[in-house]
């Protein structure tokens, strides 16, 4: 009976994943390897192609301005001494930062719907559901991001654009430091060659994690986590029979993800403090008193 139980759970979680995420690894790999009938993504490798992408991929790259009354990204008076070209560059970087935020907000929304479809999640105390999302969404987000990355860049705008790693690296500090650690993680993570069914369980295990700070009913979350982790272990054995150490290697990635999120939260804090830009209210909620 346990065997049957885990198979049902695997199926339910995989279905929830396929239903709720607009992009998945199979889709991303088809686009990245050019094996799709849809148009090739627009390559964004400098400010000029970024601006072209902003115009042509407007629907999915549209960036909201979440500025409060202290002035938005377009407030030219903030940089009175900066030359015009540099100002344009700064504005483009701020817009790019907002595009990243929009994508994050969209993914957090998808992750929430996915979590709700994980059997048992909605039976948890509502405050615990909030806590699990608050601490889990960024780890999950960077896991999903790896599916859209190869060593040269990152698929954006629902596959309509491909932003090069070199271009992201070339941006002014701290923006230029933002993505490089994610590429390094993605290279190591993608070497595990997980498919979407594996990833679905891994993402569910990230979210249903019993050691998040402030959980009300730890043992209930641990029970849920245990059933998902067991399903993941059995599924990996069946799905990757030649790779017996895949499960422990994957569990090690959880520590890398935590480190990646802590580092990311620090960078976002730095941007918030030193740059004339604003943070989406949902992301503010997640980052506030996080670690």
């Amino acid at each position: 009976p346990m065997e049957a139980d885990h198979k049902i759970l695997v199926k339910q979680i995989h279905e929830a994943y396929m239903k709720n995420f607009n992009m998945n690894k199979a889709k991303a790999r088809l686009i990245l390897t050019g094996k799709t009938s849809t148009p090739q993504p627009l390559i964004i490798h400098d400010m000029e192609t970024f601006q072209l992408a902003e115009r042509t991929l407007a629907v999915h790259m549209v960036s909201g301005d979440y500025a409060e009354s202290d002035g938005g990204v377009g407030d030219r008076q903030v940089f009175p001494a900066v030359a015009c070209e540099e100002l344009e560059q700064r504005e483009a970087e701020a817009r790019l930062f907002h595009c990243c935020q929009s994508t994050s907000v969209e993914t957090v929304t998808e992750l929430t719907e996915f979590a709700k479809a994980v059997p048992g999640f909605q039976s948890l105390d509502l405050n615990d559901q909030v806590t699990l999302l608050k601490y889990g969404v960024y780890e999950a987000l960077f896991t999903l991001l790896a599916s859209c990355m190869n060593k040269d860049g990152l698929l954006v705008a629902r596959g309509g654009g491909f932003i090069t790693r070199e271009f992201l690296k070339s941006l002014r500090r701290p923006f230029g430091d933002m993505m490089e650690p994610k590429f390094q993680f993605a290279t190591r993570f993608n070497a595990l060659e997980l498919d979407d069914s594996d990833l679905a369980l891994f993402v569910a295990a990230i979210i249903c994690c019993g050691d998040r700070p402030g959980l009300v009913d730890v043992s209930l979350v641990e029970q849920l986590q245990e059933s998902i982790v067991q399903a993941l272990r059995l599924h990996l054995l069946a799905n990757h029979p030649d790779d017996t150490f895949l499960f422990p290697r994957l569990l090690q990635k959880l520590a890398d993800l935590r480190e990646l999120v802590t580092e990311h939260a620090q960078l976002v804090q730095e941007i918030k403090t030193n740059e004339d830009t604003s943070l989406h209210p949902l992301l503010q909620e997640i980052y506030r008193d996080m670690y």
Binding site: S102, V105, E106, V108, T109, T112, E113, K116, L126, N127, Q129, V130, L133, K134, H280, P281, L282, E285, I286, R288, D289
Partner: peptide
């Protein structure tokens, strides 16, 4: 609860990111 208003909202009903 106030501190995580939007997360609560997302959990209790389907809110499109556009509405946030």
């Amino acid at each position: 609860k106030e501190k995580h208003k939007i997360l609560h909202q997302l959990l209790q009903n389907s809110t499109s990111p556009v509405d946030l």
